[in-house]
Design a protein around this nucleic acid. Structure first.
Lengths: 240, 240
DNA sequence: AATAGTAATTGTACAAATTACAATAAGTAT
DNA sequence: ATACTTATTGTAATTTGTACAATTACTATT
């Protein structure tokens, strides 16, 4: 076996950035899990951290399938459109002392490097109902403007995801069901603003999205509102 | 170790899409390696294939460092700006029978799944001088319009890279030294056209790149050409 | 019935960018 | 002086982007 390479093997994980759009508050929230204490008795030294839902992949599943499975195991969420956006593989990315105890509790090789493929999903926050599972003690939504210190390099991962949607909100809106099937132009504008973190002029926003051509105006109005009722619109179906 | 996960480990590689801009022919070429026969005696059954330069990563190097090292080992190229663009991890991506023999020759676990992080670099083709090394029998440049059948899923990887530069040629031109330090506007236009595969109008191209603001006009002209000599330009240094 | 409150809807003037299109200029070679 | 080659430049029409405020349609209150 002289000419055969004896490179080592790696732990590979997926991490999911799930961003929930909260229409009422007009903000994006990130779905986080709280790490479960791995010790049977309470061990005071264990400090639970918040983290992105993520775990090691299995042998016979694709990366996309792994992301779906892992998210489901930790949060019982199903049916999201998860899209790979970057891979993080720094040798020290899980070597911070703050993460050592959790790793000791849950991993055979707590000191091993882990390479992670990060996934992104966007969803209406009232459309899913996360329920903690596996090593998630519980799940929480946190506004993207108030993200706490997370386990591992998960703050870096989350920030990269936020940069990506900020650059091209329109790519991440179409076909993602971030709004009800029938929505007003103000709802759509609010969504754009939450994703890009930029305020837009009403008139100019309406002009521009009407020249782009994804909307179908409906013969329906709001009812029971304390002001002029807005017209409803829906998205055209993507072609493909 | 009851509550500890016993997930398997993975082979992880990097693959490099190196695109060389050939100014004379005005085309992009991809750098490929020809796989070396792993057998000491010639074995007729071994069919060498072309492949992207790529190999397994090592334990203590970052993914970016691995890409640099692997490219160097296989082609002796140094100093390229390699950028991660996608990770390919389908369980069957190295399971095609056409690849079995090479894997048997070079890998301890020829049947093992390999997850690969793909990198992209753009370079002037006359700026580097690839020299085969390691398991590369030799290296060749092939026009991106005439790519042969490659090993593994490397055609898919290469196509994904081409899509990416096509979408935003301008992102991949600045600071990449794809032109000589002093170049004419026709040279720059040719480069854009080769990257986007679209023909542009001279007057409009010049107008648009002058409103964008990366060029410094120089007090220098071509000499010895059979026509009106063109003015030279250079790129402004990126800020950062 | 009149009024107040609220958010929806719409237009215009200006600037900037995009598109389509062809004549002239500055070299070299004969 | 002429022919050849590529570089360079302008203009009109159109589209897109930007800044800015009055009117409309509904509900609730008086």
């Amino acid at each position: 076996m002289k000419n055969k390479q004896s490179y080592f093997q790696n732990y590979v994980s997926v991490d999911c950035v799930v961003l929930g759009y909260d229409e009422v508050e007009n903000r994006l929230q990130a779905l986080l899990i709280k790490q479960k204490n791995p010790h049977k008795q309470n061990v005071d030294s264990f400090k639970s951290q918040y983290a992105l839902p993520g775990d090691l992949i299995k042998e016979d599943e694709s990366l996309d399938d792994a992301a779906i499975r892992v998210l489901n195991e930790l949060t019982h969420i199903k049916g999201l459109y998860l899209q790979q956006f970057f891979t993080f593989g720094h040798p020290e990315r899980v070597a911070d002392p703050k993460d050592a105890e959790w790793l000791k509790g849950y991993r055979k090789d707590p000191n091993a490097r882990v390479i992670t493929i990060a996934y992104l999903a966007l969803v209406r926050i009232d459309h899913i109902n996360p329920q903690a599972g596996s090593f998630a003690e519980n799940t929480i939504w946190r506004s993207i403007k108030k993200i706490p210190k997370l386990a591992f390099d998960h703050n870096v991962i989350l920030n990269k995801a936020l940069e990506i949607i900020k650059e091209h909100p329109e790519h991440h809106i179409m076909g993602r069901e971030l709004l009800p099937p029938k929505f007003t132009l103000s709802q759509l504008q609010n969504l754009y603003e939450a994703m890009s973190n930029v305020q837009l002029d009403k008139r100019n926003f309406r002009k521009s999205i009407k020249t782009a051509d994804y909307l179908i105006p409906l013969d329906e109005k709001q009812t029971g509102v304390l002001h002029k009722p807005a017209q409803f619109f829906s998205f055209k179906k993507a072609k493909k």
